[in-house]
C-alpha cells in the first residue's frame, strides 16, 4: 500500500519501447482532453452504475472524490494518478453503464475511450452481489480490449447476503485476472494494483473470452466481414467486434471505418529503439 501515491511531478514520456511498452494512444488521448505527460501507463475504470466504481477509483488514487449512489453520477471523467513498482499510472473513471451497445451519451464516452484511447489496462469493476448483470458489461469490454483486469468488488456485501463468488472460476472463464475486493475497506487494493501492473507490462498474458454469438447466421456474417476489416486496418485488436457493430448498423463505428479514424484503435508495432 505504501507504494501508491499521487505523483504530481511531471517526468518524461514513457522511456523505452519494448515488449512491455505502453500501448496507449497519446494523440487520441490529447484529443479526448487527457494529459498523459509524466505517466507510464493509462488505466481506464469501467463498470455498471452503483458497483462502487468511484470507491475503487479513490482507493487506487488516494483521492477523496465524493462517491454518489445513483446512476449516471459520474457525468464527466474523473482523473487521477498512482505510482506502483516504480511506474506511474494515469487512472480515468469512465461513466457507469450497463452495456456498450445502445449508444447513449455515457456509453459512447466509455466505449470510445476504450476503443480509440487504447488504455494499457481497463479495469472492469464488477459487483459481486449482481454478477450476471455485471458480467454482461465485462464480456462486452473483453470484446474491445484484451488488456482487462476484473475488480470483483463488494465481496463483503455479497457475503452478508449469503453469496459466495469463486474468483478462480471467473478467471478461468474470462481469461483475465479477477481480483476479489472490498474497496470501501481497502481490501484487495494491493492485489488489484499488482494485477494492473502485470497486465500493463505484459507479464500476465490475458486470453480474453470471445464474445459469444450463438446464432449461426450472425456468426457467418461476422466471419465474412472480420478478415476484410483486418486487411483494411492491420493490427486492429477488435475486428470481430467492429464487424458486429457494423452489422448492427452502428453509425459512429461506420463513420470511423469510412474516414479511417478507426486506425486510432490500432497500436503501433513495437519499435526496437526509441527515437
Amino acid at each position: 500500500m505504501s507504494e501508491h501515491l499521487i505523483t504530481p511531478e511531471a517526468v518524461g514520456a514513457p522511456t523505452a519501447h519494448c515488449a512491455s511498452c505502453p500501448i496507449y494512444n497519446s494523440a487520441q488521448l490529447v484529443k479526448l482532453g487527457i494529459d498523459i505527460t509524466g505517466y507510464d501507463y493509462v488505466v481506464a475504470l469501467a463498470g455498471n452504475p452503483n458497483t462502487g466504481k468511484s470507491t475503487v477509483f479513490n482507493a487506487l488514487t488516494g483521492l477523496r472524490q465524493h462517491t454518489g449512489n445513483w446512476s449516471g453520477k459520474t457525468v464527466s471523467r474523473a482523473e487521477g494518478g498512482f505510482r506502483f513498482r516504480e511506474r506511474r499510472y494515469k487512472l480515468l473513471d469512465l461513466p457507469g453503464t450497463y452495456s456498450l451497445l445502445s449508444t447513449s451519451t455515457d456509453e459512447e464516452v466509455a466505449r470510445d475511450f476504450i476503443l480509440f484511447g487504447r488504455p494499457d489496462v481497463t479495469v472492469v469493476v464488477v459487483d459481486a452481489t449482481r454478477l450476471e448483470r455485471n458480467l454482461n458489461l465485462a464480456l462486452q469490454v473483453l470484446a474491445i480490449t484484451e488488456r482487462v483486469v476484473v475488480a470483483l468488488n463488494l465481496v463483503d456485501e455479497a457475503r452478508r447476503h449469503g453469496i459466495e463468488v469463486d474468483a478462480r472460476s471467473l478467471t478461468r472463464d474470462l481469461g483475465v485476472p479477477v481480483v476479489p475486493m472490498a474497496a470501501r475497506r481497502g481490501e484487495g487494493v494491493p492485489e488489484l494494483l499488482a494485477a494492473v501492473a502485470d497486465v500493463a507490462s505484459g507479464a500476465y498474458p490475458t486470453r480474453p473470452r470471445r464474445l459469444p454469438l450463438r446464432d449461426p447466421e450472425i456468426e457467418r456474417a461476422v466471419a465474412a466481414l472480420t478478415p476484410q476489416i483486418e486487411a483494411a486496418f492491420p493490427g486492429l485488436p477488435n475486428a470481430r467486434w467492429v464487424a458486429l457493430r457494423l452489422l448492427d448498423g452502428d453509425e459512429s463505428i461506420a463513420r470511423a471505418v469510412a474516414d479511417g479514424t478507426l486506425g486510432a484503435a490500432v497500436a503501433p508495432p513495437p519499435l526496437p529503439v526509441a527515437a
Partner: peptide, 15 residues
C-alpha cells in the same frame, strides 16, 4: 447471447 453467457459464467462462480 451475451446475457446467456454471463448467466452461465455466473452460475459456475456463485454459490
Amino acid at each position: 447471447a451475451i446475457y446467456t453467457d454471463a448467466a452461465q459464467i455466473a452460475d459456475r462462480a456463485v454459490t
